[in-house]
């Protein structure tokens, strides 16, 4: 069950240009949360910005009951968040949403992250690394070298990391999806997990279709309630011969590549 708490902030520090790492003490959340779920954060006690902001659970320190968020300053809410100091409280609800599918037989796990989308994948990598018989490869894409955050943490967790940047300032130059291994069918169980900009997720979905596998993607939609009550976060998913709207905050943010309908 999700909770609504004021979590003491233990640390909130800049780890890259406009990118922050926040650690809060939230045992009620860490006891329950799964990789791919998110928390809904109130960034101010004032009325502007009014709504909460969703953030992936970047990492959980289960024994200490601490939760880490990795976030990028985008607008008003995230700017205010960056100003919160250790010792203050963070008003948050969570864990929310459906996380990544963890019910897997030993095999190869491929995670594909774009920009801040990587924040949703580290906990997943750590989970599979703690199990026997999984080979984990992380394909991480960023705009430029300065924004390559967390690559060494993925490596330390046990993933084989490949990097791409839009401008070529680090690793391959171009979309990270160019680097995905081809013809993987028949090479044993193979799982795809992706989070990042819509264009990237779409390419991942196309890749999965070509390879004849079903991957998982985490969608980023604006949210109001975060708990399924307002129907503000709907996205289109296939249903039998037709389609239906599905709530990103409850039925997602993780969907399978075979169910998402890509608009536009």
């Amino acid at each position: 069950m999700p909770v609504l708490i004021k979590a003491p902030v233990l640390l909130n520090e800049q780890v890259g240009p406009g990118i922050f790492l926040m650690k809060v003490h939230a045992p009620a959340v860490t006891a329950e949360c799964k990789p791919g779920q998110f928390v809904h954060v109130r960034t101010t006690s004032e009325r502007d910005p009014l709504l909460r902001r969703p953030f992936s659970i970047y990492r959980k320190e289960k024994d200490a009951g601490n939760l880490q968020l990795l976030y990028e300053i985008r607008g008003k809410g995230t700017s205010l968040m960056a100003g919160i100091r250790a010792g203050e409280n963070l008003d948050l609800m969570g864990p929310l949403g459906r996380g990544w599918n963890l019910d897997r037989k030993p095999g190869t796990v491929i995670v594909i992250g774009g920009g801040m989308g990587t924040a949703s994948l580290l906990a997943l990598v750590e989970e599979f690394c703690s199990r026997k018989g999984f080979k984990i490869r992380a394909f991480l894409g960023f705009r430029e070298k300065k924004l390559v955050i967390g690559a060494e943490i993925f490596a330390r967790a046990g993933a084989e990391v490949t990097i791409a940047t839009d401008d070529g300032s680090c690793g391959y130059r171009g979309p990270i999806t160019d680097l995905l291994p081809r013809s993987v069918r028949g090479t044993g169980p193979f799982y795809i997990y992706a989070c990042g900009p819509q264009a990237m997720l779409r390419r991942v979905a196309e890749f999965c279709e070509l390879e004849g596998i079903v991957g998982e993607v985490s969608l980023d939609h604006r949210m109001a309630c975060g708990t399924g009550a307002c129907l503000g976060c709907s996205c289109r998913v296939k249903k039998k011969d037709s389609w239906t709207y599905s709530r990103t905050c409850v039925e997602g943010p993780v969907f399978t590549t075979s169910e998402v309908l890509w608009d536009g």
Binding site: R47, R222, C230, C233, S234, Y245
Partner: peptide
């Protein structure tokens, strides 16, 4: 009813616009 096409919400100063 399926409802309207997304995006269905956007925040404005101290307000919320919705078109569910």
């Amino acid at each position: 009813r399926k409802g309207n096409k997304p995006p269905r919400i956007v925040e404005t100063p101290a307000g919320l616009l919705n078109s569910i």
